[in-house]
Amino acid sequence: MTSDNAGVVAVTNKGRSHSKATNLTLKQIFALQALNGVRIRTDWFPHHIAESSIPTARPPFGENDIIIASAHTISHQFHSLPAQPQPETQSLSLNPSPFRPHCRADQQLYLWQGPNTPPSTTITHPVIEHLASLATRASLCDTRNYGAGLHKFHLFCNIFSIPETDRLPAAFELLHSFALWAVSDLSESSISSVLQVSTSIPYEPISVSVMRKYLAAVHAWHIAQGWPPPLSDNHHARINWSLRGLDNLVTSRCKPLYPPITFDMLHAIKVTLELSDPFDACIWAMASCAFFWMMRFSEVSVGSRAAFNPTKHLTRKDVFMGTDLSGKSYARLDLPSAKTACPGEIQSVFIVTEGSLCPVVTLHNLASVVPVLPNDPLFSWHNHTGEICPMIKQRALE
């Protein structure tokens, strides 16, 4: 698929978006691909290029690929999809303010200010004041992560019409309210119907752990702007009490169950991979084995190359191929570590051949495409230099 819309290209290639409404559309697109055995590939082209000059097919596109000339044809291709109710979403964005100039996230801690003048913390001398400014900026090694917390705080203030003068310094009542709002979503809770309150207030809930980081960002913002810390130990204790209660209420919402993986999804994944390629062969072996052996993704991947440990992760010698008494091929995995196993205990899992998605076949293919030594990672591939690499979780998800 070719499009002049960079956003369409990005979310289609990733398969996900920050927008709930877009994610619903992407799910429909993926369902169509799985149902029809096709794959949509996306490329960007400048809007001024004529559609007639765009090639209708080129490698690596194949007979099961969809080529669409431009962005406006996407809706035409999928107009026959059954309509699904779209959630009412409100784009949450900051109101423009002279106190919050446009800048990088790592500069917001210092450049976003308030109308109030902070109390003096040094004598009035340009050298001393300059040294204090240098010390403030050097106190934090990385301030990029604070930008998200400040952005969320000002969103809350905009929604509830908090004046700029009350944001810096912020009172305990304001920050406590900010914490309650940020982790709640009354639109998905029975509380709204019990209290008969309006659900017109927009919500963009985050987890309790992230909320604590956002409070730390507001705390750092106050100090960087010359104000005392906004919360005392007693204030933190009260906010943590509320967050703990809300965490108990919204755990099911914060961590929803993932939809089940289906055979159609596996078929859709398989047709997009080139099984003679070492990387793709490893990805397909991981997907097939994780599905049929009911393994967690962390059991077929590692966090980093240095994290691979033969005593904890599967190696090639942990796989045994055989034939049962009825003459049917099977595979056995000897798990070096498992959640249900005692320390040092090895658990074995078995699987027989299972049609076109069979993990036994995928393991045979992986062994032929990526030949390695017995102590090398089971799910591994070799790069352009021939070096054997364990499959890293983040690289696989990309």
Score class of each variant (00 low, 15 high):
380 S>G: 07
165 T>Q: 13
364 H>G: 10
306 A>H: 11
336 P>C: 09
68 I>C: 13
241 W>H: 09
338 A>R: 05
69 A>L: 15
300 V>S: 09
168 L>K: 01
227 W>I: 01
390 P>R: 08
245 G>I: 05
310 P>R: 13
393 K>I: 01
103 C>E: 09
34 A>T: 07
100 R>A: 08
12 T>V: 10
87 P>I: 10
33 Q>P: 04
149 G>I: 00
329 S>D: 15
291 F>H: 14
251 T>K: 12
9 V>N: 14
230 P>S: 07
251 T>A: 14
54 I>W: 10
17 S>Y: 01
241 W>L: 09
304 S>V: 04
190 S>I: 05
148 A>F: 03
166 D>A: 15
68 I>L: 15
215 L>E: 03
136 T>K: 02
92 L>M: 12
321 M>I: 14
288 S>D: 10
211 M>G: 00
275 L>Y: 04
246 L>D: 05
271 V>N: 11
308 F>N: 04
202 P>F: 10
31 A>Y: 06
387 E>R: 10
59 P>F: 11
145 N>Y: 02
342 C>R: 13
257 L>N: 07
272 T>Q: 13
332 R>F: 04
217 A>L: 06
132 A>I: 03
160 F>I: 03
224 A>N: 04
284 W>R: 06
8 V>T: 13
230 P>N: 05
199 T>F: 02
36 N>R: 15
237 A>H: 08
370 V>M: 08
193 S>W: 00
146 Y>E: 07
332 R>D: 13
35 L>H: 14
266 L>S: 04
60 P>S: 13
331 A>H: 03
186 L>C: 03
9 V>G: 07
93 S>R: 15
335 L>Y: 04
358 C>V: 01
261 I>H: 09
276 S>H: 08
387 E>N: 11
80 S>C: 12
125 H>L: 00
285 A>T: 06
